[in-house]
């Protein structure tokens, strides 16, 4: 038998409210993700793609279904149990850093609570920061003192400093200018080559996902309507909604 996938999401559902006010955000989600794979999740606002990341990272409990990490079930665990496996990177990364702490202090928090020793903490932080192409002295600034692109790269560095098995990216480039966005993609691409990073990449931008994802999943109203390689999705879309989305992508030429 082949090795179990890194992440398996089986029949996961999420609903808010009770009784008449019950509102289903996610229905019957099934995803498997192998080590080293990058999965893009594409959908418009309100389709539940961010909620899905929160469920996988245990920030919110699931309403139904099961979650597996390397074949072992972890449904119902707490963030502190899974934070060695997953790290989440959010869209608004300035708000994802405590405004009263420098970037370095925030990163220390991650290391302190995750790694066995904090001996080389500063070294590890600086290595990670420079791997994201930033000057190490920027780590001693407060989040508001950096530009959007810089903070976002710091957020990725923070996510990776504890060397999780997988990072979950929630619209990490949508608040940025295109040149900053492209820089982030380049660094993520480098990291993939160097470390075989596994990623889930939530975005509303199909063209962007198609450039570096191994597979893409299209979500609509809490369900995955189509999943496939970029070639399948971009060149031979099956579902009506995929075609609609594809039609709305505006290329420059």
């Amino acid at each position: 038998m082949s090795e179990a996938p890194l992440l398996e999401v089986r029949n996961v559902a999420k609903a808010y409210g009770r009784g008449k006010r019950r509102h289903e955000v996610l229905k019957n989600i099934n995803i498997t993700l192998n080590e080293g794979e990058v999965l893009g999740i594409i959908g418009e606002s309100g389709c539940g793609k961010s909620v899905l990341l929160n469920l996988i990272s245990c920030l919110e409990p699931v309403s139904g279904g099961q979650l597996f990490f390397k074949g072992q079930e972890y449904t119902g665990k707490k963030p502190k149990d899974v934070c060695r496996w997953f790290q989440v990177i959010f869209q608004d990364s300035e708000a994802a850093f405590d405004p009263k702490m420098t970037i370095r202090e925030s990163m220390h928090e991650n290391l302190k609570l995750l790694a066995e020793g904090t001996k080389n903490a500063n070294q590890r932080i600086e290595d990670m920061v420079s791997m994201m192409g930033l000057a190490t002295e920027l780590a001693d600034r407060y989040p508001r003192q950096l530009s959007g692109g810089q903070v976002q790269r710091m957020a990725i560095a923070r996510g990776l400093v504890t060397e999780p098995n997988m990072i979950l990216c929630d619209e990490i480039t949508s608040a940025l200018d295109v040149s900053a966005q492209a820089m982030i993609l380049q660094y993520l691409y480098e990291l993939r080559k160097k470390r075989g990073l596994t990623m889930m990449f939530v975005s509303h931008d199909m063209a962007l996902c198609a450039t570096f994802c191994d597979r893409m999943a299209i979500m609509k109203d809490g369900e995955i309507v189509e999943i496939g390689t970029p070639e399948q999705i971009m060149d031979h879309p099956q579902h009506e909604y995929t075609k609609l989305l594809l039609d709305a992508v505006l290329y420059t030429r």
Partner: peptide, 21 residues
């Protein structure tokens, strides 16, 4: 030219970024 290279295109090539601001 830098700006256009940073936009993901139909060819699905990795976009090229521009350092700094």
């Amino acid at each position: 030219r830098n700006l256009l290279a940073a936009i993901p295109g139909k060819d699905r090539k990795m976009p090229v970024g521009l350092e700094g601001r």
